[in-house]
Amino acid sequence: MRVVSLVPSLTEAVAVTLPGVLVGATDWCTHPAELDVPRVGGSKYPDLARVLALRPDLVLLNVEENRREDADALVAAGVPVRVTYPRTVPEALAELTELLADLGATQEPAWLGAARRAWADPPRLSPARRAVVPVWRRPWVVLGSDTFAGDVLRRLGTLNLYEGHPERYPRPEFAELRDIGAELVVLPDEPYRFTADDGPEAFPGTPCALLSGRHLTWYGPSLAEAPAVLAAQLARPVTVPA
């Protein structure tokens, strides 16, 4: 089996579980650190000629990370694709279990068992906090309904005020975002790299939790440590004076 992954979290999952199966990955596939396979460009705009040159038996894709036209082009070229789309932690664990078994794993990897245990009873903020979760700035974009990251945060005691929005990634006016009554602003470092110097200053007086985007949005080996990492970061917000 020769697999090309266009999804960083799946790249890590396959690489650490089935060494030798992965023959190509994107430039953004940074884990595991020692990964040494040909690169095929970005997730949104991969070099399909490079992908095809690797003669893959399967290309791994994700609805949010990759474009439909690239999936269609690969299928038209005769390359099987597998498209993932987990929107909850249980869905992610189930998809990973099925994928790895289909790729040849004869038993569940240790990291996947650890992830199941970690998410069976994750640490939670107490009391739960009403929050907004910007994922982009200029313009502001926030987590809305039916997202994997939203489910992760909900399980950790964070109540997304845009959870009931009809869109998955709303673009509210900043005045609305500022005045909605959030008790916490969650600022991940992916896809927009929010930092202590870029983000909290927009919400003076409101605690801002700076989170690891990899642990918030990746579904792979990072799931095993995500509850502890994210809970610790949520518990240590920074506040810019009003």
Rank of each mutant, 00 (worst) to 15 (best):
T158I: 15
L153G: 07
N160H: 02
D189Y: 11
L93I: 13
P134W: 01
V135C: 02
S145F: 00
L93T: 13
L177N: 00
R124T: 07
D146A: 00
P127N: 05
A131Y: 06
W140F: 12
W136S: 11
L125S: 06
V89P: 11
R171F: 13
A128W: 12
P109V: 14
E98G: 15
R137A: 15
H165L: 06
D121T: 04
L184A: 04
A131R: 10
E91L: 06
T97W: 12
P123Y: 09
I180S: 06
W136K: 00
R116Y: 12
A110F: 03
Q107S: 15
P123D: 03
L156V: 07
P170L: 05
P188Q: 09
V142N: 09
I180Q: 08
D151S: 03
A110Q: 14
S145W: 01
R155L: 04
Y162F: 15
T147Q: 10
L184F: 08
G150W: 03
A182N: 12
R155E: 05
L112P: 04
G113H: 03
P170E: 12
R138D: 15
P139L: 08
W140A: 13
Y169K: 05
G144Q: 01
D179Y: 04
R124N: 07
V185K: 10
A115C: 00
V186F: 14
D121S: 09
